[in-house]
Amino acid sequence: MANPVYLALDLPQLDAAKTLCQKVKGHIGGVKLGLEFFCAHGHHGVHEIAHLGLPVFLDLKLHDIPNTVAGAMQAIHVLEPAIVTVHASGGRAMMEDAKAAAGENCKVVAVTVLTSLDDAALGRTGVSGTAHDQVMRLADLAEASGLDGIVCSGHEVKAVHDQWRKGFFVVPGLRPGGRATGDQKRVVTPRQARDDGASVLVIGRPISRAEDPLAAAREIEGTL
């Protein structure tokens, strides 16, 4: 992949999202559209962004019974996403059915532990051990389920990459050096994540909320 940066384009106004994407498209490799965008703009919004000519990553984090998730995957075939997320905690059967129902050219990756959770927050959900332990367990399960890869923080990507050499790894929660982390708990720089084996770098607010988004995107690209 020439440019691994996928811009998280979760803006409430479609015109603003299109304008931002058009402005920085020469310095990113794709666009991540999450729940906020999809709930606001639906299939129409995805088509509008896709017309700008960049690969689309649908970060829908599907998590339900296997039949329902498979049906959802089939429903988004027409959108031709490059990447779609499901939750690894949905279990092996759900992940297997999600992959079977996905388009031929669509990578299905499993969300392991959200980057907004640290060890203490994870423990309060009933999960024993550290976030790192849970990511490694779920990575094993995702690989056994036939998925293409996982979503994890930059703190775990090196260990997962060492374990799953052919995996496809999406790393969100990235912050260039010295930038505010906001609600993200487990963050690293884009350069570190890339060096540690990340396939896709998801970057949102450091670009979308920058005073000069174009300059911010160009600066991040220059570090990779």
Rank of each mutant, 00 (worst) to 15 (best):
I150T: 12
V127G: 07
A216D: 07
P66A: 10
I65H: 00
V187G: 06
V170S: 05
T19H: 05
S145K: 09
L224R: 15
I220H: 14
T112F: 08
L54P: 00
L9G: 01
G71E: 11
R137H: 13
Q184A: 05
I83E: 10
L60H: 07
A210S: 13
G53V: 08
G45V: 05
V113I: 08
S208P: 02
G45W: 07
A198V: 01
V127M: 12
S199G: 03
D140A: 14
V56A: 03
W164R: 15
K18F: 10
D59S: 04
P206F: 06
Y6R: 10
H87T: 08
K23S: 06
Q134K: 15
A70Y: 12
A144K: 15
A159M: 00
A8F: 01
V86P: 02
D119A: 03
V69D: 13
H27D: 07
K185S: 04
G29D: 02
V135N: 03
A193S: 05
I207T: 08
G34R: 07
G149A: 09
R137K: 13
I49T: 05
E104F: 15
A159P: 09
D119L: 11
V127F: 10
S116N: 11
V188F: 04
V160K: 13
V86Y: 08
I76S: 03
L117V: 06
G103P: 09
R137P: 03
A8G: 05
A102L: 12
D183E: 13
G178C: 14
M1F: 12
D133I: 06
E48Q: 00
N3P: 07
L60S: 07
N67I: 08
V171K: 13
I76V: 15
A210G: 06
I65T: 09
L224Q: 06
A142V: 12
G149E: 09
G103S: 11
G123V: 07
V188T: 04
V86C: 05
D148K: 02
S153M: 13
V31T: 01
V202Y: 07
L20R: 05
H77F: 06
Q13W: 11
S116W: 09
A72L: 13
L122V: 08
V31E: 12
M136Q: 01
V5M: 10
P66F: 14
R124N: 15
P66T: 12
G30T: 07
A217C: 07
G182V: 01
I83T: 03
L54Y: 00
T223A: 08
Q134R: 15
L7T: 09
V78R: 14
